[in-house]
Structures are given as C-alpha cells and as structure tokens.
Simulated assay, not measured.
Amino acid sequence: MPRPKRDEQFETGEICIVHAVQRCVRRAFLAGVDAQTGKDYSFRKEWIRRRMEALASVFGIDVLSYAVMSNHLHVILRNRPDVVASWTDAEVAIRWLRVFPGRRMEEHLAEPTEHEVKVLTGNADRIAEIRQRMSDISWFMRSLAEPISRLANKQDECTGRFWEGRFKAQRIVDEAGLLACSMYVELNPVRAAIESDPEKAMHTSAFDRIQGSQGKRINSAAFDLKPIPTEEAARRIRETPVEELREQQRAKKRNPTGKRIRRDAWLAPLTLSPSKLAADAEVNRDGLRASDKGFLHVSIRDYLRLLRWTAKQSVDGIAANVPDSLASTLTQLGIDASMWRDLVWQWQRYFGKSICVGSPESMRKDAQRFGKHHHRGQASASACFA
C-alpha cells in the first residue's frame, strides 16, 4: 500500500504533532559502526543533533522528542503556524536566509546582509510562501536531511543517497498516544541493547533533559538572527583575506551566537503550564526554539520516573505492575496500566504500520476527517486502552 499524501496527515495551517522516521539507505550503519569495514561513524549523530538544534531556532516547529540511531532517526515535531504568524516579514526573511542562503559570489562570507533581507521582504508573494514553509514539517525534515547527506558524501568521497527517501510520518492525535510515542522514541537505544538505561543513551531527548536537569551546558548551535549591515559586509570582503574570512565562518558555525546553554534548552519544555491558555503561542524570545509551550500534563520528575521504570521492563514474559504513583498518570489518559509495558516495548505491533497514533476513539475521529471508518492499527491498539 502506498504511503498517504502529506496533506492527508498534516497541514501547514493547523497545529499538529507528527512522529517522523528517516532511515539511511539499505539500513546501512552510516551513523554508527559499520560491521563490514569496522569504521566508526558515530560522530555523525552529533552532526544530526546539532542540525536539529539549529533548525529549532529558526523554524516555527517545536522539537518534542528525538533519538538518533546508527541507521535511522526518530523525531516528534509540533508545527506552530501561530508562532510564525507573530513574526515580522523581516524576521521571516532572516530565518529563511539562514537556512537557505542561496548562491553568493562571496561564498566564504555566507551570511545574509541587511540589503538581502530588505530585498526579500519587498516581495510580498515570496514572503507569504516562505512564511507558510517555516511551519511546514516537510520543509523542516528536508532542511535536516539534505545538509547531512552532503557532509557525509563529501567525507566518504562519493555521491548518491544517504537517506532512503521521504520520511515516514505518523500523526499523533491525543496525549495518550504522545506519551507512549515519546517513550518509545527515547527508549530506542535501550531496546536496541546499545545502552542499559536512558541516562547513558546519548543523542536522545531523554539524555538531554536529564543532563539539563543536572545543569550541564553546551555550545549553542542556534542561528544568529541578526543580519550583517551591508557596509560592514563590504568592508570585510575588501579588507580581510579570503582564508581568514573562511576561518571566521568555520568558527561561527561551531557556535553562531557565542552562547552556552542548558543541554535541553533547544527542546520544547515537557510540561504544559496550567496557568497558560490553550491558545497562547508562548513564543520563545531567546532565539533557541519556536515556543516555550509544553506538550504533556506530566511533570518532568514523573515523566523520567516512568521512563526509567519502563526501561527496566525489557524482558518479555516477565510481568511487573506499574507503581501506583505512576499508574494514576496512565489511568487519567485512558491507558490500561497493565498494558503499558507492552504498548511501549511492542510499539511496532500496535502502531508500526499506522499513519495515526492515539487511543482508538481519537484514531476513529481522525479517520472521519477523511471519510474513513478507521485507521490501520486502531483495533489492535484497543487492547492497551481502558
């Protein structure tokens, strides 16, 4: 069965949450240890993480959870057209030019100038098109995948695809599905027996949040959202040797804003604020992410407790009851606590071939939007919900 059209799963004009999976070609270990050659490409995982962090600073898209594996990537994204609507035309232009600088005669400068921003904002139709793209999950994934492919191919001195093709997408339609999917994503390294617990699983959002809670800081990968004055750009080109300009540009790529941030500061906060209205965009003003809006009615403390408990339930056939203090969280979301372990660890059985994730009732309502009676996987998932 062919994959559904993107507009059947999500639209750029509405806020929705999507679980995206991008795989390497032939499921090769192009970001891990190659079993055939013994070469270790694990450092490319940090390429991918930093690129996501950079894109989170310019797109109107929240990164909720992620896991970078040796041969594939999981990421849960929430598009935010409401946030993009709050940006001025100049803000839209500088954000776009940071990601897509276009061809420049002075490639070694590679930074947008005030003149380029002014020219772009003068084209109303183009700005309207770009504004729509800045909250488009497909454009986010394209902007993530293409530069990684180019870097890997340049390093390997080859051409061809790094990724299989377009990413697989699953629309998440309620909080129960989001909680289960987030833990499924973050426990991928534990499921693959790469790590024994979330604290050690680098290149996952769980690792970032745990490190962040301990005060760990990193160099920010966020784009600098200030264009260069046109006169200053001209002066640099006239007075600075090309090699020096290129070195300055390489240094700026390592830390564009010169900031050090908490390791999880670029991710969307986990907990929804009870004091905020549902319609509040909660726009981030630090230039690190689209918004400060959380995504679960669960505290980070309870979330990590449930994550750690779930990580320990890796052996099939050994039943363990969810602690009462955690079971209440699941029950409130309509999840059968006795099936929680199975829902997360056997995720592929329930939702592996589905384009929609959530409780059976939420999946049924989503299917009705397209004149369907149900989504694939809806019946099997019903065993995990009260």
Rank of each mutant, 00 (worst) to 15 (best):
P256L: 00
G38C: 06
R285Q: 08
V68W: 05
V190W: 05
F43K: 10
G215W: 05
H203G: 00
L330K: 02
R51H: 01
A93F: 04
Y184I: 01
V242W: 08
P112R: 01
N71D: 15
D125W: 02
F140R: 01
Y303G: 06
E53K: 02
A381V: 13
S275M: 14
M1D: 07
R142W: 04
V185H: 10
A279E: 14
R349H: 14
M363D: 04
V117G: 08
S382R: 13
H373L: 09
R209H: 05
D82M: 06
Q378N: 10
A31R: 05
E186V: 11
K39Q: 15
D366L: 03
K168R: 13
M363N: 06
R254A: 15
A90G: 08
E199N: 03
R260E: 15
A201P: 03
S380L: 10
I48R: 06
S359H: 09
V84R: 04
Q348A: 12
R98L: 00
C158P: 04
F10P: 01
I48T: 12
S57I: 01
R171H: 11
A85R: 15
R289N: 11
W266K: 10
V33D: 02
L272S: 10
E243W: 01
S138L: 06
F43S: 11
S275G: 03
W340M: 03
F59V: 07
S57V: 01
K216H: 13
G317C: 05
L151I: 07
R3Q: 05
A201S: 13
F223N: 00
P274L: 10
L245H: 11
F370G: 08
Y41D: 02
N255F: 02
G38E: 04
Y303H: 10
P256H: 00
T88M: 02
G371I: 01
E282Q: 14
E186D: 15
V117Y: 02
P360H: 13
W139K: 04
A367W: 13
R161S: 15
E46K: 14
K252G: 07
E244T: 13
G212H: 12
V58E: 01
M363G: 04
